[in-house]
Amino acid sequence: MRSEEEARRAIGLYGDTVRRICMVHLKNYADTEDVFQNVFLKYVLHSAPFDSDEHEKAWIIRVTINACRDLLKSFFHSRTVPLDSLIEKPGQIPEDHREILEAVLALPAKYKDAVYLYYFEGYSASEIGSILKKNVNTVYTLLNRARQLLKNRLEEVPDIE
C-alpha cells in the first residue's frame, strides 16, 4: 500500500490526465468522480513498483480507460440515462477549443482513446498499442478511420505519421 503522500503526488501528477480521459468517455460529473476515485484507490492499493514515471503514467492511463469501460458496461449504465445527460452542459467544455473537443467526443468509443493518446499525450502508435494492448497496425487503422471521421466535422486534422 502506498502512503498518503504518494497518493497526493500521484493525484497532482496524473489527475489532469485521468480527468481528460474521463471527459472523453463519460458524460457526467458523478461518473467522473467515481472513476477518478477508483483509479487512485487502485493506485494506492497497487504495491508493485513501477520501472519509471512513464511506466507509472501508462499504468494510470490503462487503469482509467478500463475503469471507464467497466462503468459504461455496467448494467445500471446500460439501462438508465443520467438526468444531466438530458441537459446540454456547455460549461464542461471550454469555449476556445470547443470544436475539436466536441468532434472528439462525437467519435465512436473505440476511437477515442487512440485519438486522445496520439494527438494529446503524444504517444507513438506502438506505445498506444502497448497501452491499449492492441496490434500496432490496428492502432494505425483506428487512427486513420478516426481522422476520416474528424475531417467531416473539422477543417484541419493533423496527419498521422
Partner: peptide, 21 residues
Amino acid sequence: KNAFNEIHAEPELKQSTMDYL
C-alpha cells in the same frame, strides 16, 4: 494539445478523492 490542456482536474475533485482515500 491546447484543446485538452484546458481541461484540468478540478481542485474539489482532487480534494474529494483525497478525502475518499
